[in-house]
């Protein structure tokens, strides 16, 4: 049995969905993932080779049970049902958000970018009130949106656009080493004027990485800055030497006292 992947299968889903719900799979990257295939009792979802192959759907045998919709870790499978006719389609989406969406109530159907497509009635809700389960919501929309719907929302306000502001001129200085408060400008001065060939030497001279965190937090950004300012240096620049204790511990505890 040969199914079709990605948008190739969508035409078939559109055609077959006049008979009832069919799975619309919006997953076309090679992701190591196969639960949809495992979940399909009909054997209608097939990964052609290995678990990285995009799932192919056989729309003829898909019975629209929705098991793949509920389990898909990418939340990338939907159901399309045009069997109700009169220019309407029912689209089922996986849902794990906070809006209060009730059976029989109205909600927004949105596309993949969150754009409003249509307002529609919620005709089915499954898995509600059961933590850990993915809810399946079915919304009724004009048929022309059937392949476009990717989400359902209560009428949540849309985000306002961020304000555009004047470009700032000078780069403000800031503490690069958070513990010892070594400024960014000072650190770069040390790196570019010094003859440091290793992070330990840079650390000893600049004191960056010698505070309470002992460089555990900042070593990777210190390394990036060092390599950015000295691009000719070998990538395998020497790292901080690791010494015990690798986690802070009170000396009194090392001495055998409690606390």
């Amino acid at each position: 049995m040969q199914g079709k992947t990605g948008s190739e299968s969508w035409q078939e889903v559109w055609d077959k969905s006049v008979n009832g719900p069919r799975a619309l799979i919006d997953c076309w990257q090679e992701i190591p993932c196969d639960p949809c295939q495992e979940a399909c009792a009909q054997g209608s979802i097939v990964l052609s080779s290995g678990i990285c192959a995009p799932p192919a759907l056989h729309a003829e045998t898909c019975n629209g049970c929705g098991k793949c919709v509920a389990i898909c870790p990418g939340m990338a499978i939907f159901l399309v049902d045009r069997s109700i006719g009169s220019g309407l389609a029912r689209v089922t989406v996986p849902y794990e958000m906070r809006d209060e969406i009730r059976l029989g109530g109205e909600a927004w159907a949105v596309d993949g970018e969150g754009n409003y497509l249509a307002e529609g009635r919620i005709t089915r809700v499954s898995g509600a009130g059961r933590p850990g389960r993915t809810m399946l919501l079915t919304i009724e929309v004009p048929e022309e949106w059937a392949l476009k719907v990717r989400g359902v929302r209560g009428r949540r306000k849309l985000l306002e656009e961020p304000e555009e502001v004047e470009a700032i001129e000078a780069v403000e200085d800031f503490a690069f080493c958070r513990c010892e408060e070594i400024d960014y400008s000072r650190l770069r001065e040390i790196i570019t004027q010094g003859e440091f060939r290793s992070l330990p030497a840079l650390r000893r001279f600049s004191r960056a990485g010698l505070g309470y965190c002992q460089g555990r937090f900042c070593q990777s950004i210190l390394r990036s800055q060092f390599l950015a300012d000295c691009p000719e240096e070998d990538r395998e620049v020497e790292s901080f030497r690791v010494r015990a204790p690798v986690r802070p511990v009170k000396l009194s505890r090392l001495g055998g006292e409690d606390g």
């Binding site: 958070r178 505070g211 309470y212 965190c213 937090f217 986690r247 802070p248």
Partner: peptide
Amino acid sequence: FCMIGRCT
């Protein structure tokens, strides 16, 4: 910052 005890 890190919530796992590294950044102090």
